[in-house]
Design a protein around this nucleic acid. Structure first.
Lengths: 190, 190
DNA sequence: CAAAAAACTTACTTATTAGTAAGTAATTAA
DNA sequence: TTAATTACTTACTAATAAGTAAGTTTTTTG
């Protein structure tokens, strides 16, 4: 066998995220997942009864990852810039893989999601905003960053730049994301 | 009859845009449109053979609107701020209607669109970016606005703030859009 | 090792979707 | 005013989608 047997649940989550971020929540089916993983349709339903459950678990994974990242960052004694760039790198990677972020990927479909899932998406958004806010605050305190707005507002501005930046990159080209990325950092250092 | 007989084609375009911007490109069907307009499925196909044709025409409508707006703006002798706020108002209206912008609405599905349509989306994006760029340039020239980046880059930053801002507003609340909106203007006036 | 639990497959169902061929009604143009 | 064109409806088809009930295999555990 060429592909070693991975944990099916984990494989579905990974592929699901990939599909959602590449073609959108409503543009793929469980059949697509089943075909690619060489399992049956019902096997996908076994792990995630419905698509919303799958997406919910993907969001939960992100919440977990960002929670861990947040805790790591709180302990590390490195420049705020290095911390911020970790976030930037994540979005840069999305651009390289022709993906958009997990939240932007369902921005259009958001209203069709069950309340329970929408709440989790909101939690993830606030979590990421908070991480960036803290990092900005830290960078301002130690003299690394300069910005006039509150850290919260600056976080909003930067995260909207990044998330729409990855969306834009697929339409007008990857250079636009790089431009945005560099400009944000430049502004923080001015 | 309560609802007067409108031009069917136009009604489909309007409802189509509404649905795309509210629930996303792949979350509604021609049956939804037919039902709401009290016509038959095939009537929708008559005007727009496929969904991509419908979306293409919606984008073309936007290209037309923004082209007209651009020409109007070129002639008007009013403050750049007033011009810029016209764009802001459009996005503000989206927030009020629980919609996201036509481009953001297919950001996730972009890769599934036919090449022809993607090209038109790119045209629309460049058009809007150009309008904002010109307005920023004008405002800088006459001393209204202050910004350090090139007008093009500043336009990128502002438009990513706005388009992700309307997406964010549906998740975390309308206040966040207002915060972003005010902050952009504040920065331009600093 | 036996039995219970987990991870599936088989084999359906039911609904929706996109689309079209053929016919009819309404409008417009000669 | 009739003939052509436009704007539909009727009545399908073929494909896909989501989901599930029942059975089988595999893995885990007492």
């Amino acid at each position: 066998m060429i592909t070693e047997k991975k944990d099916t649940r984990e494989a579905i989550l990974q592929l699901g995220a990939e599909l959602i971020q590449q073609v959108g929540y409503n543009a793929f089916s469980y059949a697509d997942i089943a075909k690619k993983l060489d399992i049956k349709n019902a096997a996908v339903h076994y792990h995630f009864p419905g698509k919303a459950d799958l997406y919910e678990n993907i969001v939960e994974g992100h919440i977990h990852n960002y929670t861990v990242l947040s805790q790591q960052m709180a302990q590390e004694d490195i420049p705020a810039k290095a911390k911020l760039e970790r976030i930037f790198t994540r979005y840069g990677n999305l651009v390289d893989c022709d993906r958009i972020c997990v939240i932007g990927a369902i921005a259009s479909d958001y209203k069709t999601l069950p309340e329970k899932v929408r709440t989790k998406v909101a939690t993830l958004v606030e979590l990421v905003l908070k991480i960036v806010e803290k990092t900005l605050q830290e960078g301002k305190k130690n003299g690394e960053f300069t910005f006039k707005e509150s850290a919260r507002v600056q976080s909003l501005l930067i995260m909207t730049n990044l998330s729409a930046g990855v969306q834009l990159a697929r339409i007008t080209g990857k250079k636009d994301f790089e431009t945005i990325r560099k400009s944000i950092l430049k502004q923080l250092y001015s």
